[in-house]
Write a protein that binds this DNA or RNA. Structure first.
Lengths: 189, 189
DNA sequence: GATATCATTTGCCATTTGGCAAAAAGCGCA
DNA sequence: TGCGCTTTTTGCCAAATGGCAAATGATATC
């Protein structure tokens, strides 16, 4: 819980009463490896904060290939925004890549926090915008770079993730085949 | 001006007084083809709404190649968020690809609107979040697709832009060479 | 330890895309 | 119309990556 509060306080101030209110709404969620936090075709009904483990967002492209859109590390918010905000079916899965521990808020409680805590919406907006900008910044450069450069950039961004996720997930994140990634790794050694 | 108001009202309600206040702060900006709306290395000091023309965001990658990050069509907000919000030097250029007409707000007026108009920040947040999510959605799939599919997707998304921008800009947006794009176009005919 | 299962690496060859330079096409302007 | 400039297309060959299948390695289970 401490991790969540520290995280949030980076984006704005809250008094003890407000922190207590947030804490009182939080529940803990444990997911085993491969379990889904939210699923494509369903409406996302919770916001999570990843305390332990690695998750990923993935989907199936029009060729039926499973694509990892991005990885989520410890101390980050986890939510299918599009689905949660607009109450529409999600187009992607959020999946635990390792066993994961989340701090969770259901939609009703989350709404209540937004309505009750002055400034909470501003904090949430900052967090969301920052995360979105980060995604754009990470995804855009991939287009110009060759597979080796992409992998090296991946190593830097996700240094803490590399050794905890299967090669296949990384390959699909980078848009290359498993074999290519395997060869790239060999070349870099 | 009407276009801007209609655009904004899609994201929330404003009364006539609020609309008038917004209007009173707006100035018109004309940029000739190739001129910059904001520049890398400088701090972005204005928010614009593109009324006429096509712009793009571009930058130079580590190989010195000029990369088009995305195109901006009529009736969209134009701002280097990272730079404008945090008052840090921009890392990308925002450039008029054709002659462009913007409705502009300088930083001081924009702040004043945010402080004065109740709900304006919520509207702006919605607009920004939506735009960011759109960027992520557009950029992410590129990674899995071959050059022809990428170009076809580009055609759908930017149907209104294709014939108004040089082939070289599109090629760099798609992460392929001009020659490749030229060949792809030939094959599609 | 043997075995089943899944993940990763490797080999071989096909396909895609890039690099470079020249040719062709398009366009403004005298 | 003709010239000069920029943009786009094309040809040739090289390099990168993919597709497929087999081999190897890692891990869990009995």
């Amino acid at each position: 819980m401490k991790e969540l509060i520290n995280y949030v306080l980076q984006f704005g101030n809250l008094n003890q009463q407000q922190i207590d209110l947030i804490t009182s709404k939080a529940t803990e969620l444990q997911l085993q490896k491969d379990a889904y936090f939210s699923e494509a075709g369903k409406i996302a009904r919770q916001v999570g904060f990843l305390v332990e483990g690695v998750s990923r967002v993935c989907y199936y492209n029009n060729k039926g290939e499973e694509i990892t859109k991005y990885f989520i590390e410890e101390n980050n918010l986890v939510v299918d925004l599009e689905s949660f905000d607009n109450e529409i079916c999600a187009s992607a899965y959020v999946q635990a890549v390792t066993d994961c521990k989340f701090i969770c808020f259901n939609k009703k409680d989350w709404q209540e926090l937004l309505n009750t805590i002055v400034g909470w919406d501003t904090i949430v907006n900052k967090i969301i915008s920052k995360a979105l900008m980060q995604k754009v910044e990470r995804r855009s450069p991939l287009v110009t770079e060759d597979a080796t450069e992409r992998y090296q950039k991946f190593l830097r961004i996700y240094a803490n993730v590399v050794n905890r996720v299967p090669l296949a997930y990384i390959a699909s994140y980078l848009g290359i085949t498993q074999s290519s990634l395997s060869r790239i790794r060999k070349n870099l050694k």
